[in-house]
Simulated assay, not measured.
Amino acid sequence: MSVGRGRFAAIFVALGLAVTLSGCSTAGTTAVDPDGLPGVWTGSGGGRVEFQADGRFSMKGIPTESVGFAFGEPPAEDRVAGSGTWNVDDSDEDRLQLRIDAGGSFADADQMAVLMVAEDGPPQVLFFSTNVDKPYGYELKKKNP
């Protein structure tokens, strides 16, 4: 085998391996199941999000760094509480958007958090998408009814 063919074969094998391995992780690539959301979801350290079927949610004990503070300063507390509305992103069904109302730990309205699927279910495991350089944020699992 010539050097050129050997190099071509090695590149082909490497690309095939990369494609195969990239298929092993489904984090953030699975659509959120909106029908499976209503109920209580919990995370480590006592974090809790309760989703209502009418598109409302409430949360408490969520790490402050899990929330995007676009229009105000983050609260000084390590964990936050609040409520608002949830919806699956129309342009990306892999993203569940939480729009947080003023109140609780949030002095300003229009704060936002994003949840994505860490593990496809049933039931799904969700995680707060906190940083594009970090594959996972704070994970939530649905409590049994």
Rank of each mutant, 00 (worst) to 15 (best):
M1N: 11
G4C: 04
R7H: 10
R7Y: 10
F8V: 15
I11P: 06
V13L: 15
A14L: 15
G16C: 12
G16T: 05
G16V: 07
A18Y: 13
V19R: 11
L21C: 11
S22I: 09
S22F: 12
G23A: 13
S25V: 12
S25C: 04
S25P: 08
T29V: 06
T30W: 01
T30N: 06
V32W: 01
D33E: 02
P34D: 04
D35S: 12
G36E: 05
L37E: 02
L37D: 01
P38L: 06
P38S: 02
G39C: 03
W41T: 04
W41C: 03
T42S: 09
G43R: 03
S44P: 01
G46H: 13
G46C: 12
G47Q: 07
G47P: 04
R48L: 13
V49W: 02
V49A: 03
F51N: 06
F51H: 00
A53I: 02
D54N: 14
G55L: 00
R56C: 09
F57S: 08
K60E: 13
K60Q: 05
P63W: 13
P63N: 13
P63S: 12
T64D: 11
E65R: 11
V67N: 01
V67F: 07
V67M: 07
V67I: 14
G68C: 08
G68P: 00
F69Y: 15
F69Q: 07
F71G: 05
G72V: 09
P74F: 05
E77P: 03
D78W: 12
D78Y: 11
V80W: 10
V80Y: 09
A81N: 08
T85C: 09
T85H: 13
W86V: 01
N87G: 07
V88Q: 07
D89E: 12
S91M: 08
D92A: 01
E93R: 05
E93C: 00
E93I: 05
E93Y: 04
D94K: 03
R95T: 07
Q97T: 04
Q97L: 13
I100D: 01
D101A: 02
A102W: 02
A102L: 00
A102Q: 09
G103S: 09
G104D: 01
F106K: 15
A107T: 14
D108A: 14
A109R: 12
A109Q: 13
A109L: 04
D110C: 10
Q111G: 06
Q111E: 15
Q111V: 08
M112P: 00
V114L: 12
L115H: 00
M116N: 08
M116S: 11
M116F: 06
V117Q: 04
V117N: 03
D120C: 02
G121P: 02
G121D: 14
P123W: 07
Q124V: 03
Q124W: 00
V125S: 14
V125D: 10
F127A: 03
F127E: 00
S129W: 05
S129K: 07
T130P: 00
T130M: 05
N131E: 14
D133E: 12
K134F: 06
K134M: 09
P135M: 08
P135W: 08
P135Y: 11
Y136C: 02
G137R: 00
Y138C: 09
E139N: 04
E139L: 07
L140A: 08
K143P: 01
N144R: 11
P145S: 15
